[in-house]
Amino acid sequence: MTTHTPQASTSNGIDAAVQHPYRYQRRYSGRLQAVIFDWAGTLVDFGSFAPTQVLVDAFAAYGFQISLTEARVPMGMAKRDHIRAITRIPAVEQRWLAQFGSSATEAQIDHIYESFMPMQISQVAQYSAPIPGALETLQALRERHIKIGSCSGYPRQVMNTLLPHASQAGITVDCAVAADDLAAGARPGPWMALQNVIALGITDVAACVKVDDTVPGIAEGLNAGMWTVGLVLSGNEAGFSLAEFEAADASLKDKKRQYAGQLLAQAGARYLIDSVAQLLPVLDDIQLRMQRGERP
């Protein structure tokens, strides 16, 4: 019987690569290839009122009252999941138990979702004016030959209404993925962001930036291996309407900025800015970091 004695690993052989797996780690150092945006609170609908107000209305149609603040808590999730998550907020669940005698069932969640859908489809356009600076930012990305992706917690039926309305206002993207497009699911998983990578022909996820105003949207970008930028004043967490934002004094804006910024930073946002209007300098900084071999 013969025996085999393992040979010492060589400095440039396969055994050495196994022994030191991180020595050969590849780092992307090319140009920024794509920015992937959320929709409500990011490109359109300052304050993200289309989904939140309609959710309040859908619950009211079922005979149950929730506040706009409660509607905002799970923002960024697919809308049926969003409705379920609202019913699991402790204060909401207590009121639900008192009114109905048990926690919300899947059948009740389905009923509210079925009420929500036609309301959302009919009302999404009226809430979805471009956020100031969005048009200019998208134009600058095109001039830089950076592809423009997008994804949303909206289902496809709602996106089919929103997209032509947004296009008439000048907001167009190269790819738009809806929350129910993929069998794998939606946020906080990476799948919608990664579908943009596939559709846009991106060669490395580290060449992408995910821009979002919600905690699940930031998690989506991180889970997809992308740079992440959180929007603190134009979106859901601050909850300003555009008129409220323009009328607010510096103290109130700072208070909202701190609150929303803390939530998004804890979620893992690499950068925090007030709105999409401030995005271009961030992209310049990310490009420099990529050229140094840094990763998200």
Rank of each mutant, 00 (worst) to 15 (best):
T2N: 15
T3L: 13
Q7T: 10
A8M: 10
S9N: 09
T10A: 11
N12V: 04
I14S: 11
D15P: 00
A17Y: 00
Q19Y: 02
P21R: 05
R27S: 13
R31T: 13
L32W: 07
A34D: 12
F37M: 08
F37K: 06
F37H: 04
L43V: 03
F46V: 07
T52Q: 07
T52C: 08
L55T: 14
F59A: 03
A60T: 15
A60C: 07
G63I: 06
G63W: 08
F64N: 02
A71Q: 06
G76E: 03
G76K: 03
R80K: 15
I86V: 13
T87C: 10
R88A: 09
P90I: 01
E93C: 10
R95P: 01
W96T: 01
W96Q: 08
L97Y: 04
Q99D: 07
Q99C: 09
A107P: 01
Y113W: 10
E114S: 10
F116N: 03
F116D: 04
M119Y: 09
V124E: 07
A125M: 02
P130R: 13
I131V: 10
G133F: 11
L138E: 01
L141K: 06
E143A: 11
H145E: 15
K147R: 14
G149V: 10
G149D: 13
S150R: 06
C151I: 08
S152E: 10
S152M: 09
T161Y: 12
H165F: 15
S167A: 14
Q168F: 09
Q168W: 07
G170C: 00
C175K: 05
V177H: 07
D181P: 08
A183Q: 12
A186S: 15
P188W: 13
D204I: 05
A207Y: 13
V211C: 11
V215I: 14
G217V: 04
I218H: 09
E220W: 05
G221Y: 13
G225N: 02
W227L: 02
V229R: 00
G230P: 06
L233N: 14
S234K: 04
N236H: 11
G239M: 09
G239T: 12
G239K: 11
L242D: 11
L242G: 01
A243E: 15
F245P: 05
A247P: 04
A250K: 14
A250V: 12
S251N: 09
D254I: 00
K255Y: 11
Q258T: 15
Y259V: 06
G261Y: 07
G261C: 03
G261P: 00
Q262P: 00
Q262N: 14
A265R: 15
A265M: 05
Y271A: 05
V276F: 08
Q278M: 11
P281G: 13
L283C: 05
L283F: 02
D285F: 00
I286S: 08
L288Y: 04
R289W: 05
G293L: 00
